[in-house]
Design a protein around this nucleic acid. Structure first.
Length: 478
RNA sequence: CCGGGUGUAGCCCAGGGGUAGGGCGCUUGCCUUGGGAGCAAGAAGCCGCGCGUUCGAAUCGCGCCACUCGGACCA
């Protein structure tokens, strides 16, 4: 008899990647829909993942001298409008508060889509002397952008993020800050999330509204689409001039300071899902997994099993691992499937047969490899196994990235490569926005970045044939 | 925002102008435990929302909302 599917399952990603993604988000208990388009409920398991990300990043920011602050949710229209490029960029996706109680407001208030304007307005008041610089602030908050289409984690109207905002006496120092924070993001993605990144600079067309230069890290998903995982902006003194921020330097001269901002959002969770997930569900990088190891007692009604499992749990907790013991009365098979769906990096099985031999079994989520471990070596073995999962995930993601990079010398070639394989298409580029637009119109790709790691693929632009000195990555992005 | 699809129990879906259906899940009991076990009983629904047509609407019409797939726009 053909076994009917007993439980709701996850669509195979080869069959329908978008459906697979949505299934994982829901079945792994990360997120739930609310009654309003584009705003989501972060469920405990999904929020715990964000908290772990927050905790690590927050430590990195503080280590490099940044302080956390909290700015208001609302921006008066007049304040938002001071920087021309910025307001033009964000106006189409602003949501406004126009009523207070039953009264119409004198001036409407924008719900922050990002907080540059608020920080500038505040910086103007607190910075007067060279002694006040640098200012290195960060805030954890949510922002609102009235997106037309939305998807869990990848594109919310309201999303959680951090935004760093810093002010410096010199352009060099501000640029160093911008680049340093990009490195921080790249380090975090690669060493904590096991996501390899491509670092580079956005073209003028793609840069942040109001920025002089935008740096980015770009990741490659399983389906060949690109994901911008974090950005860091150098503003020059544009915002400072627009918002009238001045300081007196050591020579008693009035100067305009230089500014940066940088942000990373819950979108990254979407990136984790699409980088590491498989047809059994989520696969979480061990360093941010809410549960690093789930302990499953086998034949738990037999004497000694539950006690032994609880002892192992306590030992591992004491050793600093995030562990959970599941002694619910579900069958072992059910639990195996459940925790695979939730992406728990390591499963620990312990049953009567193990206890007789003073051992347990560790199973890796990424490749299902089993390892029998003597109980007195458990802490070391688990640490090794978690590290092995991290390394395994990174290697697999790196291979996926590398197998999704193709070189092209003409627009037609680029278009065909994208259509056939997806991925990043690298070409030489003359630097003109017209060529970017043409690539978008005819090949459906936007420029992802001008990578730091440049290669010389030729001397002419793949689109217009004119002289070209820069190599650009193109792709279809989330 | 433009075009297509969908909305019936927690999930997947059938039905259909006149008492609301199935499978899975859920609850309780028995049984079972190294890859989503079995038996029995039970609970659970403004049939997405509003307005219309009708003696009567979950069913027909219109509007809206949400989800989804393309496209345009954006972290």
């Amino acid at each position: 008899m053909a076994k009917e599917k007993m439980v709701s399952q996850i669509t195979d990603m080869e069959l329908d990647f978008a459906q697979w993604y949505t299934d994982v988000c829901k079945k792994a208990d990360l997120i739930a829909y609310s009654g309003v388009k584009g705003v989501f409920v972060y469920r405990p398991y999904g929020y715990a993942l964000w908290e772990n990300i927050q905790h690590i990043l927050d430590g990195m920011f503080k280590e490099s001298g940044h302080e956390n602050v909290y700015m208001p949710l609302l921006i008066p229209e007049s304040l938002l409008q001071k920087e021309k490029d910025h307001v033009e960029g964000f106006a189409p996706e602003c949501a406004w508060v126009t009523m207070g109680g039953s009264e119409e407001l004198e001036e409407k208030l924008c719900i922050r889509p990002t907080s540059e304007t608020l920080f500038c307005d505040h910086f103007k008041d607190i910075v007067h002397s060279w002694r006040d610089l640098p200012v290195k602030y960060n805030q954890w908050c949510s922002v609102l952008r009235w997106e037309k289409t939305s998807r869990p984690f990848l594109r919310h109207r309201e999303f959680l993020w951090q935004e760093g905002h810093t002010l410096h006496a010199t352009a060099q120092e501000a640029i160093a800050e911008t680049e340093g924070q990009l490195e921080c993001y790249a380090d975090f993605c690669e060493n904590y999330l096991a996501m390899p990144v491509i670092k580079g600079v956005k073209t003028d067309k793609e840069k942040f509204s109001g920025a002089e230069r935008t740096y980015t890290i770009e990741c490659m998903m399983h389906d060949g689409k690109a994901l911008q995982a974090g950005t860091s902006h150098y503003f020059g003194d544009g915002f400072a001039r627009a918002y009238d921020i001045r300081f007196t330097d050591k020579n008693n001269q009035l100067q305009v300071p230089f500014e940066t901002s940088w942000g990373l959002s819950t979108r990254l969770i979407g990136g984790i899902i699409m980088t590491h997930g498989d047809n059994s569900g989520l696969v979480l990088p061990p360093k941010v997994a809410p549960i690093q190891c789930v302990i499953l007692p086998i034949a738990q009604h037999k004497p000694g099993v539950l006690d032994a499992a609880a002892q192992l749990r306590d030992r591992l907790k004491k050793a600093g691992f995030r562990v959970k013991m599941d002694d619910s009365d579900q069958s072992p098979g059910w639990k195996f499937a459940e925790y695979e769906m939730k992406g728990v990096p390591v499963r620990l099985e312990v049953g009567p047969k193990d206890l007789e031999q003073n051992q347990c079994v560790l199973v890796r989520r990424d490749n299902r490899e089993k390892r029998v471990v003597p109980l007195d070596e458990l802490e070391t073995a688990l640490a090794e196994t978690l590290q092995a999962v991290h390394d395994g995930l990174y290697a697999k993601a790196k291979a996926n990235l590398e197998s999704h990079i193709f070189a092209a010398s003409t627009l037609e070639e680029a278009r065909d490569l994208q259509k056939r394989n997806g991925g990043f298409i690298k070409t030489m580029w003359c630097g003109s926005e017209e060529c970017e637009t043409k690539m978008k119109d005819e090949a459906g790709m936007s420029s992802r970045c001008i990578p730091f790691a440049q290669e010389h693929l030729g001397d002419t632009c793949a689109i217009c044939g004119k002289k070209a000195e820069k190599m650009l990555y193109w792709g279809v992005a989330y």
